[in-house]
Write a protein that binds this DNA or RNA. Structure first.
Length: 884
RNA sequence: GGGCGAUUAGCUCAGUUUUGGUUAGAGCGCUUGCUUGACAUGCAAGAGGUCACCUGUUCAAGUCAGGUAUCGCCCACCA
């Protein structure tokens, strides 16, 4: 009967066909498509739309798996859910990739021109955008594909222009000359967040600037960038610096040039650093720029956008790269005796986040968003708990950044992105408009020129949660699903994205974009290094899914997601999830012949103690799962499910009931149907495919498990559950004795139980079949007489003797019992120390004292029995070294 | 320079807040025995930990406070 039914139920779970089948099924059933007209409560989530630059990596796997767990549960709890998928044009990231592709053809973007380049970029987007979508589907997520958005879509573009115009009209966007981070390779300005630090071992050059008035006298300045001295327009000292007080106002001759520059006083100068005198290059340093503003200094741009020396530098140096120029300047200074000394010096240089080129800070006309007024309400909503970060520690990180945020440079000298909606007329008029203007409103000229630049990609990302729902129009989706409930990302885009979504949303919609932000762990490789695709190390989720299955991948991710800052991951770790899914599969395989097609009616009155026990375990697990999902402690949820399913359900319960199953007992079938149904439901959010498959194979419900209702606790009877636990302990101890005395599995042993505890004795008599089967015991009898040459197990109110004629090793037996006695003596000693301590008795909580008293009584009873047994043992020398 | 995290078994990690109180747990690896009618991706048994260190608070500290060390992450305009 077994064999026939299991023909199509192989031992090994094969995930691939199951995944394809059910994902298509859910999609066709319309489970992913949000219905705004539904009367159900609403739940919506946001995750970072993947870039169109690459393929699925672990970050995507986390971003998608964790919210999918939540959204599946919410669906089962009766919510109407929306999870809108999309991709991001990823401005500079994609542009760099396309440029690299062109470079392989030996071309630059300038060879192609803007229009042709954009054509190539769109081709790239079509190709890789589709690829990433295909890959995302394999994670099994409930994404509403009917609402798919791309950040350059017309819907998003309209929102971007609307946002820009509104900011501008409110005076929150301005164009100005500032020191920006310039990438000489990408040929664009970058925001502060797109610059990374790299430690560089370099030198501190001490340069003598001759005083004009006092021949032979110098002011010595220290610098890490000698080449910029060609653009110096002052030397600054701290106004409180006694050493230089009498030099303020005097002039020095700038070496290697003909220029005379003043010595000025400015509080930004640190007296302790270097010589206390600093060269001021307003065109190439942010601090110097500010000093320059305060003192109306000239800005001489000696380094150009291509990182070569400009025509403003002395002729000799023009056209040199900044590196060549540095060398030349140092040599020339040395030759003139103006280089006082060189010190080793390590400091950080900024590099372009995308291409690694050293950033050149330079003065440039760019568009900026004024941050102060936007930051204020964005700080408030987090302080007031309207937007909450999980784990909580990220709140502080956010608030600190937001508290000292500087203006946001939003223009990029790139081609791939949202074009800035600003037009310039030949009459000098600047037009900022939502639609392309046909003529200048002032002079009616039609000769308008649109700003060449595009916006920072994060400008459109900042609008994502509401722009994708149709804002600025009050669409049904927007009215129904916004603000959203949950967002999850990596920690490294808290400022780039979360922060900007929060202030943008408040500014434009008057509402927060989401209530809960979960910042997940950073995934490291096996050696603890950050995973990076460029280095080719780390874990490829697609290979994991191919090898172990989506469920295994998702379960492992959840199991490891313990709210820590990071964790290490390597391919073999997914065996955890794979083995677990296989375990579930096989448990289904075991019970399939017995329960298929049954109704779920729990016969509460007829349940055995084992049934009550497992139902109670289920209830405890349910509680942990609910609590964990509400608090986003994914690891605790996965672990609770793992422990319950594997250890309680499979190791004990299924073993306990095997004989009842074979006897086709109706009660146990009913329990199994109810229990398995509810257990698969609890597992479903994390491992959706195998649970759906078993749901159908075991015919546990009509339709999909995803449309079933999230389970509640079973009505439980607590009686006898304590006896169950003791019986489990007893079985383990019998097994232990058998293993220690090397009794083969095939040779059954007898048990003689000696106890005055009537309740336990009655229980054991009633449930003796369980002990017999699980501990391989042939016969259980009750007697107070210890059979000769038997092994003994001592518990609080009795003993169990296992006659082992010819097998029992007296030495081992003695050793085991005396070790146990020693343990008990130590425990009793510790408890007595407490119980004899007046302070403990007067200050500890009553429950703690009571528990100690109970435990002492139990230990003492066991010890007494143990000692009695030991004294009746044959005269054998107790080994001395019973240290423990 | 500031902030945050980590340090628990050979390895990778839970547990530490809300709530200090049982003999500190898991997975992997290791040892022993099992091809037992779900599963060897498995079953049973076992070994393995002065919870980084110091000092406090407390009747009681892996858990709370202060400090030290090591590692990691983030932020920051000492040229």
């Amino acid at each position: 009967m077994f064999q026939e039914k299991l023909n199509d139920f192989p031992t090994r779970y094969d995930p691939k066909p199951v995944e394809e089948k059910w994902y298509r099924f859910w999609e066709e059933k319309g489970f992913f498509t949000a219905n705004p007209d539904s009367p159900k409560p609403k739940f919506s989530i946001v995750i970072p739309p993947p870039n169109v630059t690459g393929s699925l990596h672990m970050g995507h796997a986390l971003d998608n798996t964790l919210p999918d767990i939540l959204i599946r549960r919410k669906k089962m709890q009766g919510y109407e859910t929306l999870w809108l998928p999309g991709t991001d044009h990823a401005g500079i990231g994609t542009q760099v990739k396309v440029e690299q592709m062109l470079a392989r053809e030996g071309k630059t973007r300038f060879d192609l021109g803007r229009e042709e380049f954009l054509k190539r970029a769109w081709e790239w987007k079509e190709k890789y955008g589709q690829e990433i979508v295909k890959q995302l589907r394999r994670l099994g997520c409930c994404l509403d594909w009917s609402r798919f958005r791309f950040t350059l879509d017309e819907v998003c573009a309209r929102a971007v222009r609307e946002a820009f115009v509104r900011y501008y009209e409110k005076g929150l966007i301005y164009r100005g000359l500032r020191i920006v981070n310039w990438c000489p390779r990408c040929l664009t300005a970058l925001s502060d967040l797109e610059v990374k630090d790299k430690d560089e071992r370099s030198f501190l050059w001490y340069i003598r600037y001759p005083l004009l008035a006092d021949k032979g006298q110098f002011v010595v300045v220290a610098t890490t960038r000698p080449e910029t001295m060609l653009g110096d327009t002052a030397v600054a000292v701290n106004p409180n610096d006694e050493r230089y007080r009498n030099l303020i106002g005097k002039k020095v001759l700038l070496p290697l040039t003909e220029r005379q520059i003043p010595i000025i006083a400015d509080p930004a100068v640190e007296m302790e650093f270097g010589t206390g005198a600093v060269k001021v290059t307003p065109a190439h340093d942010p601090v110097d720029f500010e000093i320059g503003e305060r003192h109306s200094l000239d800005r001489i741009k000696v380094i150009g956008e291509d990182a070569r020396m400009t025509s403003f530098a002395p002729k000799k140096y023009q056209g040199m790269t900044r590196e060549e120029c540095r060398q030349a300047v140092v040599e020339d200074l040395k030759a003139q005796g103006l280089l006082e000394k060189i010190e080793d010096y390590s400091h950080a240089v900024g590099i372009c986040d995308r291409c690694g080129t050293v950033i050149e800070p330079l003065a440039s006309e760019q568009w900026f968003v004024k941050m102060k007024p936007l930051a204020e309400p964005a700080i408030k909503v987090v302080e007031q708990g309207k937007v909450r970060f999980y784990p909580e520690r990220w709140t502080k990180v956010y608030l600190e950044w937001m508290g000292k945020v500087k203006d946001w440079c939003i223009s990029r000298q790139l081609w791939w992105g949202h074009r800035i909606p600003v037009w310039y007329c030949e009459c000098g008029e600047t037009i900022v408009a939502r639609e392309d203007p046909s003529e200048c409103p002032k002079c009616h000229s039609q000769n308008l020129r649109q700003d060449e630049d595009v916006l920072d990609t994060w400008f459109s990302s900042a609008l994502w949660p509401f722009a994708t729902m149709g804002w600025p129009e009050e669409t049904v989706d927007y009215r129904t699903f916004f603000p959203t409930d949950f967002l999850t990302t990596d920690p490294d885009i808290i400022f780039r994205w979360e922060a900007r979504m929060i202030f943008s949303s408040i500014e434009f919609t008057g509402r927060i974009p989401f209530t809960d932000v979960y910042i997940h762990s950073t995934v490291l490789d096996r050696s603890g290094a950050r995973m990076s695709r460029s280095k080719g190390v780390g874990v490829d989720p697609l290979l994991i899914i191919d090898k172990y299955g989506t469920d295994a991948c998702r379960f492992t991710i959840a199991y490891l997601e313990s709210q820590s800052q990071s964790y290490r991951l390597w391919n073999e770790r997914f065996e955890l999830g794979r083995n677990f899914t296989n375990k579930i599969w096989n448990a289904g395989r075991l019970i399939a012949p017995f329960i298929t097609g049954g109704e779920s009616n729990l016969p509460i009155e007829d349940l055995s103690p084992v049934d009550n026990w497992i139902l109670q375990r289920f209830n405890q697990t349910l509680e942990k799962v609910n609590k964990g999902l509400d608090q986003y402690t994914f690891a605790s949820v996965a672990q609770a499910l793992y422990d319950f399913f594997w250890h309680d359900l499979c190791d004990w319960y299924l073993e306990f009931i095997k004989s009842r199953l074979k006897a086709n007992e109706p009660v146990v079938r009913q329990v199994l149907i109810s229990l398995f149904r509810a257990t698969l439901q609890l597992l479903h959010p994390i491992i959706p495919f195998i649970t759906e498959e078993l749901w159908h194979r075991l015919r546990l419900g009509n339709g999909s498990i995803l449309e079933s209702s999230w389970p509640g606790p079973f009505p439980g009877k607590e009686e006898d559950v304590d006896l169950m636990e003791r019986m489990r302990e007893l079985i383990s101890e019998v097994r232990q004795v058998r293993a220690e005395m090397r009794v083969p599995v095939k040779s059954p042993v007898e048990c003689v139980v000696n106890t005055q505890n009537e309740r336990f004795a009655a229980f054991l008599k009633k449930e003796e079949i369980l002990i017999k089967e699980l501990a391989k015991v042939s016969k259980i009898s009750f007697s107070s007489i210890r059979p000769p040459s038997s092994s003994v197990i001592v518990f609080a109110d009795g003993e169990v003797y296992i006659p082992l004629a010819g097998v029992v090793d007296v030495q081992k037996e003695l050793s085991r019992l005396s070790c146990e006695a020693e343990d008990l003596r130590r425990l009793i000693f510790e408890i007595d120390n407490r119980l004899n301590n007046a302070d403990f008795l007067s200050r500890a909580k009553r429950e703690v004292i009571e528990r100690d008293e109970e435990r002492r009584a139990e230990f003492a009873a066991r010890l007494e029995r143990l000692e009695r047994q030991l004294s009746s043992m044959p005269e054998t020398k107790i080994p001395k070294s019973q240290n423990r």
